[in-house]
Amino acid sequence: MIKIEELEFYYKRKSELFQHLNVDLNEGKVYGILGHNGAGKTTLLKLIAGLLFPKSGKCSVNGFVPKERNPYFLQEIFYIPEEFEFPSTTIAKYIKTHSGFYPKFDMNIMDDLLNEFELSVSRKIHNLSFGQKKKLLIAFAVSTNCKILLMDEPTNGLDIPSKSKFRKVIASYFNDDRLFIISTHQVRDLDNILDTIIVIEKGEVIFNQTIEEIQNTLSFQKVKNLSEMDHVLFSEKEFGGFSVLAESKDFGETKIDIELLYKAINSNKETINEAFKNEHNN
């Protein structure tokens, strides 16, 4: 549904952010985009939404060129930025004036979610806390029934119960026709809700695998001594031993530790990607 080919982008000509960005994203998936600060996560989301224009290369989203901002494209995409401000009005009025733009907007979902997030429609938006505003925006975004939902650090500012509710919302309203992209630092908040992990570094996609493929390929173990294991791909010292990344074919399927995976990819992406290639060939 999203096809990016040889995309080039920079804010300042001298410091290129993306030179040859290539990535395909498909419906029916919840993508998690990981990367260091400044790696280009937010920029990628904005390019997909058509808020930024590629300097060269191709970017096609749902059959549209985002840059054109075709209203039929905009009806099917919703972007939740990390920071934003609502107009000063009540929740009810905001919904009334904005929902009409989205032909598939579902008021029942909106009501349910406002209930779930404990937001009353009569509240004035500018009196809400940042976390409440974020929940309102998430609720609205989900209710639009847009095909593509882009979320930049959606769990930032949410309290613990709200984070849990956020995961429930994703599990409830995500389906095979929709494509969710979540950019995040807080991997733990989204652990089991993602089904594809994308890592970008220095303007390139250096890792792109589904949870199932990761499960089949990599094994996440904890050992007391590194000598207990052969074929270690990556290890990290922790209290009382080591967290270890190895190949599943040697050690079986385990729960995925995305943080450990992320560290491993950053320290040695070639070895990790090699493991996936080998698994694929088997």
Partner: peptide, 13 residues
């Protein structure tokens, strides 16, 4: 779907 929501896990899993 019901189970996915309940345990907060991706429906594909």
């Amino acid at each position: 779907r019901e189970l996915a929501i309940n345990i907060e896990v991706n429906p594909n899993t």
